[in-house]
Simulated scan of single mutants.
Amino acid sequence: MTKALINIDYTRDFVDGALPVGEPAIQIEKAILERTKKAFDQNDYIVFAIDLHDKEDHYHPESSLFPEHNIRNTQGRELYGQLRAYFQEVEQSKNVIWIDKTRYSAFAGTNLDMKLRERNIREIELVGVCTDICILHTAIDAYNLGYSITVYEAAAASFNPKGHEYALEHIQNVLNGTVVKRGEA
Rank of each mutant, 00 (worst) to 15 (best):
L52W: 13
I99M: 07
Y80K: 03
A39E: 02
V96D: 04
A39V: 02
K94L: 13
G76P: 01
K55I: 03
Q42R: 13
L83A: 00
T74V: 01
L52H: 12
Q42C: 10
K101C: 09
V90M: 00
D54M: 10
N70A: 13
Y45E: 07
H69F: 10
R103Q: 15
E56C: 02
I97H: 08
H53Y: 14
A85Q: 10
Q42H: 13
A39Y: 06
I97V: 14
T102E: 15
K55T: 02
N73H: 13
L79G: 01
V96Q: 03
Q82M: 11
R77L: 14
I99G: 04
R103I: 05
L79S: 02
Q82V: 03
I99H: 04
V90E: 04
A85F: 06
S105N: 08
F66R: 10
Q92Y: 03
A49V: 01
N43T: 05
N43L: 13
F66C: 04
G81Y: 01
I97E: 14
I71L: 14
E91Y: 01
K101T: 07
E68W: 07
F66T: 04
E68F: 03
D44H: 11
E68M: 09
H69T: 06
N95V: 02
I50A: 09
L79D: 01
S105L: 12
Q75I: 15
V90I: 15
D100M: 05
D51Y: 15
D44Q: 14
T102M: 13
E78C: 12
D57G: 02
L83V: 00
